[in-house]
């Protein structure tokens, strides 16, 4: 239905229910898998497939509606507000893990070592434990495997090898993304497409480097999810970030594909903007990670 002032209100929606069904199936399957059920993984994969197909269908519909001029400026503003507040919710999600890092480093680990009100904790529980960071805790959890057993020894991740390279990769991808946007605004499709190709490539390169880093951590450094609080915060923060980079790169690939097909105009390119905002958000989170996880 188009109202007189042109607000587009779709009649019915089949995709959203199906997306939900896919997600439900995936999570129920994952939960059963964690509980050791043999069919859990199958359900999870089927659910994931449904989810992906339905999201793709939904977005294809949105794209074609957008290209056929169904949406007016007001609808465009609604979409942008939606994206902005979605990103804000993601900021809060990351804030939890940054907060966890801050709390453990500055409060709970020192308390375990006897600082503040922790004197009794130290004396009674772990008299030998000295406050330190990085740490895998008083029980020296995880660490390198020696003779088939964990040794409690691990190496923390340095900042100036791959992580520094990754910082450069992501920062330049932010630049190429903006360059592509300028191309779009200047009706320079060639620049738009080249900029997007560069951005997506840099994004996937980042993921590749991160994978290499993880591989090294697990095989050579004894640094795993199980290496106490350092390993937990390290992998949780960088892992969720890496996942977001993957998602962002996939979104940008879709935007690239649409640019190829001739979509987007200087005055109508919400999908591009949303993808770019998301990408910059992922970028900023990385800077936070680089400083608080790797350097400090």
């Amino acid at each position: 239905m188009s109202t007189s002032h042109g607000y587009y209100i779709p009649h019915k929606a089949t995709w959203p229910v199906m997306v939900t069904a896919g997600l439900f199936c995936m999570l129920a399957g994952f939960a059963s898998y964690l509980n050791g059920s043999s069919s859990g993984a199958t359900f999870m994969l089927v659910g994931f497939a449904i989810f992906i197909i339905m999201v793709a269908g939904w977005f294809t519909l949105q794209a074609s509606e957008s290209e056929s001029g169904t949406y007016n400026t007001q609808v465009g503003i609604s979409f942008r507000m939606g994206m902005m507040w979605f990103i804000f919710s993601e900021v809060m999600f990351f804030a939890v893990f940054f907060g966890t890092l801050w709390y453990t480093r500055n409060l709970s680990v020192p308390w375990l070592g006897g600082e503040g009100t922790g004197a009794a904790t130290k004396a009674l529980l772990w008299p030998d434990y000295e406050t330190a960071w990085p740490t895998n805790g008083p029980a020296h959890l995880g660490g390198k495997i020696v003779d088939g057993k964990t040794s409690g020894e691990f190496e923390p991740m340095g900042a100036f090898g791959l992580p520094l390279l990754n910082t450069l990769l992501l920062l330049s991808s932010g630049v190429t993304c903006t360059w592509a946007h300028h191309g779009l605004l200047a009706k320079n499709r060639d620049q738009l497409i080249k900029g997007l190709i560069a951005t997506v490539t840099l994004g996937f390169l980042f993921v590749l480097c991160q994978a290499t880093e993880y591989h090294e951590a697990y095989t050579d450094m004894g640094l795993t999810l199980g290496s106490g609080i350092y390993g937990s915060t390290f992998f949780m923060l960088t892992g969720f970030h890496g996942f977001h980079v993957c998602v962002g790169a996939i979104i940008l690939s879709v935007v690239l594909f649409r640019s190829w097909k001739g979509h987007f105009k200087p005055e109508n390119h919400f999908a591009f903007e949303a993808a770019a905002w998301y990408w910059h958000f992922v970028d900023v989170v990385w800077l936070g990670l680089f400083i608080f996880v790797y350097i400090m």
Partner: peptide
């Protein structure tokens, strides 16, 4: 399920 120790003091969590 994944061996982290966010809320386990033995691993430095709380």
């Amino acid at each position: 399920f994944f061996e982290t120790s966010f809320f386990d003091a033995a691993g430095g969590g709380d």
